[in-house]
Computed example of a mutant assay.
Amino acid sequence: MNTKIQKITEADQECFVNMFNYYLYELSAYSLEDIGTNGTFEMDDTSPYYQDERLHPYFIKVNENLVGFILITSPPYVAEGVDYSVQELFILPKYRGMKIAKEAAMRIFRLFPGRYDVGMFKSNAKAVKFWTNLLSSLNIAADVKEGVVEIAGNTLSTMALTFVIQSEVDSHD
């Protein structure tokens, strides 16, 4: 399997917004958000992802098929003392369990070594397991911080992992 990441540009906006709505659909099991009156999830303006060089959006492709995306932010869009944050990582259900998310994360880590923060809903057991297993497989220790966030009137438990990616990261397959 040939996994690649491809920078998302303004020309990709429609495709990205469509795919992001699939992501929000899946995330709604944890965020408890409802769709809007137009039948889609309410989204923030995505144009900063195409216009701000401190935001790093990538499609994930396998054998030229679009299978997901990964969104990385850098200062000032991250907490103090953090270089990068994995804001979102999404793989279409058909392609899960094939180590595509791991390979995409590894490609990002090679491009952007430094201090990372990854946040997730604590109830999202798949995300918690993915990030915990990935870091464990790389022998990378992470600081764990629990918190809460309020979304649509719901108070939800969160979990954040902070860790350091060295400039020479190996996948340890």
Rank of each mutant, 00 (worst) to 15 (best):
V128K: 08
L156G: 03
D117K: 08
D34Y: 10
P75N: 01
L32N: 12
K99Y: 00
V118K: 04
P75M: 04
E26R: 13
S123Y: 03
L66P: 13
N154L: 05
I140A: 07
M106H: 02
V128T: 08
T162H: 08
F69A: 03
G119K: 06
P57T: 12
E80F: 04
V128L: 07
M1H: 15
M1I: 15
K99D: 01
N63R: 14
S137G: 06
N21T: 03
I108T: 00
Y116R: 06
T40D: 13
A105F: 01
T37K: 12
F163Q: 05
Y25K: 13
F20W: 05
K126I: 06
V164Y: 03
K145E: 11
F90D: 01
A29F: 13
G147N: 04
E14V: 14
M43A: 06
M1E: 15
V128S: 05
V149P: 02
L27W: 08
G81K: 04
D44Y: 12
H56D: 12
P76H: 03
K122C: 02
E150W: 00
P57V: 14
P76T: 03
F112I: 04
K4N: 13
E80N: 06
D52S: 11
A141P: 09
D117S: 06
F109S: 01
E88G: 00
V144C: 05
F109K: 03
N65D: 12
L32S: 09
F69Q: 02
E168V: 13
Y22L: 09
S167T: 14
Q13K: 15
L92S: 01
A104F: 02
G97V: 02
Y49A: 09
L27C: 09
I108W: 00
Y116E: 00
G68R: 10
A125P: 05
M1S: 15
E103S: 01
Q6N: 15
K122E: 02
V17L: 09
I100Q: 00
D143K: 14
F59P: 15
V118M: 05
I8Q: 10
S28N: 10
Y30N: 10
G68K: 09
V67K: 11
G68N: 08
A11E: 15
S123A: 07
I70Q: 07
R115W: 02
N2E: 14
I5Q: 10
D170C: 04
F121T: 05
E33D: 15
R107Y: 01
R96L: 04
A104M: 01
N133R: 13
K94L: 01
R54G: 09
I108F: 00
L66S: 10
D170E: 07
S136E: 09
L135A: 04
V118A: 03
Y25Q: 13
H56W: 14
P57M: 11
T73H: 04
S28K: 10
M1C: 15
D52G: 11
P48N: 10
